[in-house]
C-alpha cells in the first residue's frame, strides 16, 4: 500500500482565526476521496496547503512522497488543482487555454497533447471559441482537462460541480472514475450527498478538524445515529412539533416522508411515541449520509460554542 497523501498536524490561521487545526489524513494511491464539511470548515484551505499554494503554520507530511514544505515545487508539478471558481482565462479560446497550460508545465508534444485533450472533451469543433462563452458544465470539464493535461498523479478538486446540471455532473464523475482507474488519486470537496456516495471513501471536516473518515457506510455506522422515517398523510406537518422534543436532534422532510434523527434510540423512540397513531407509520431506518452530516455538524457547533447544547 502506498500513500498518495500522508499529512499530520496541519494548522493554518488567517488573521488570528484558526481555519485548519491539527488536521491529519492519509489517502491511498488510486482512491477517490470525498472531502465534505460545512462552508468555512477549512476544505479549500486544506486543499491549498496540500498543493503548495499555502504554507501551513505547523504540521508536516508528504504528498506523492514529497515533503509538503520543502518540495512544494515537485508536488505542484505532479498535482492537478481545480479551483472552486473557473480559473482559466475567459478571454482566451479553449485551445489557447490548454496550450498555455501545456507551456507553463513545460510539456513536450504540446500540439499533440492539446489535440488529444480537445478530442477527449469533444470540443475539437469549438476549439477557437472563447472559454468564457462556455456553459457552466463545459467550463468545469475544460477546467478538469486543464488540470489533468500534465498527467498528474494527484488531483485536488475544490467543489468542481457546484452549480452544474445533473447530466453534466454525471459526465464529470464518469471522467473522474476513469482517471482513478488509471491510478490517479483524487481528493474532491463537495456538498452533494450523491457525489459523496460515488467516492471510494469520505473525509468529513468541520471547524478545521477531521471528524469522520472511511467509506460512506462506515461513516454512517460509526456515527451511531438512530433515525425513524415517518409516513402517512400530513406527517411532514409534525416537523416543528418534533423538532423541540428531547432526544430529537434533527427533523427533515423528504417529500411526503419525515426523517427524525437523534443519537439516543430510546429517547428518540420516546419522542415519537405520542405520534404513533393513524395515519402515521414509523419505521426505524438506517440514517442517510445527510442525516449523519447534519448530526456531525451539530456536534461541532456545541463543541465550539459552550452552552449551546445545554438542553440535552
Amino acid at each position: 500500500m502506498t500513500l498518495a497523501i500522508d499529512v499530520a498536524g496541519l494548522s493554518k490561521s488567517f488573521g488570528g482565526r484558526r481555519v485548519v487545526e491539527d488536521f491529519a489524513i492519509q489517502l491511498e494511491t488510486g482512491r477517490i476521496c470525498g472531502f465534505l464539511g460545512p462552508n468555512g470548515a477549512g476544505k479549500t484551505t486544506t486543499l491549498r496547503m496540500l498543493c503548495g499554494l499555502l504554507t501551513p503554520d505547523s504540521g508536516h507530511g508528504t504528498c506523492l512522497g514529497f515533503d509538503i514544505g520543502a518540495q512544494a515545487d515537485e508536488i505542484k508539478r505532479r498535482t492537478g488543482y481545480m479551483t472552486q471558481r473557473f480559473s482559466l482565462y475567459e478571454d482566451l479560446t479553449i485551445e489557447e487555454n490548454l496550450t498555455f497550460i501545456a507551456r507553463v508545465y513545460g510539456l513536450d508534444r504540446r500540439g499533440e497533447r492539446v489535440g488529444e485533450a480537445l478530442k477527449a472533451l469533444g470540443l475539437e469543433a469549438r476549439r477557437r471559441q472563447l472559454a468564457g462563452a462556455l456553459s457552466g458544465g463545459w467550463k468545469q470539464r475544460l477546467a478538469l482537462a486543464g488540470a489533468t493535461l500534465h498527467e498528474p498523479k494527484l488531483l485536488l478538486l475544490d467543489e468542481p460541480t457546484a452549480g452544474v446540471d445533473p447530466r453534466a455532473r454525471r459526465t464529470f464523475w464518469d471522467e473522474i472514475h476513469a482517471l482513478s482507474r488509471k491510478g490517479l488519486t483524487v481528493l474532491v470537496s463537495t456538498h452533494y450527498m450523491d457525489e459523496a456516495e460515488r467516492c471510494h471513501e469520505i473525509a468529513y471536516i468541520a471547524a478545521g478538524r477531521l471528524l469522520a473518515r472511511g467509506t460512506a457506510d462506515e461513516v454512517v455506522e460509526k456515527a451511531h445515529l438512530a433515525t425513524f422515517r415517518g409516513e402517512g398523510a400530513g406527517v411532514d406537518r409534525l416537523s416543528p412539533e418534533l423538532a423541540g422534543k428531547p432526544g430529537v436532534e434533527s427533523v427533515a422532510a423528504f417529500g411526503p416522508t419525515l426523517h427524525v434523527s437523534g443519537p439516543d434510540p430510546a429517547a428518540l423512540e420516546a419522542a415519537i411515541a405520542p405520534y404513533r397513531r393513524a395515519p402515521f407509520v414509523w419505521t426505524k431506518v438506517s440514517p442517510s449520509l445527510e442525516d449523519v452530516f447534519i448530526h456531525l455538524m451539530g456536534r461541532v457547533e456545541e463543541g465550539s460554542a459552550p452552552g449551546a447544547g445545554a438542553g440535552r
Partner: peptide, 13 residues
C-alpha cells in the same frame, strides 16, 4: 479578481 492567479500559482510557475 477573476481567480486565474490562483490557478497560475498552483502550476510550477
Amino acid at each position: 479578481e477573476r481567480g486565474t492567479m490562483e490557478f497560475l500559482l498552483s502550476t510550477p510557475a
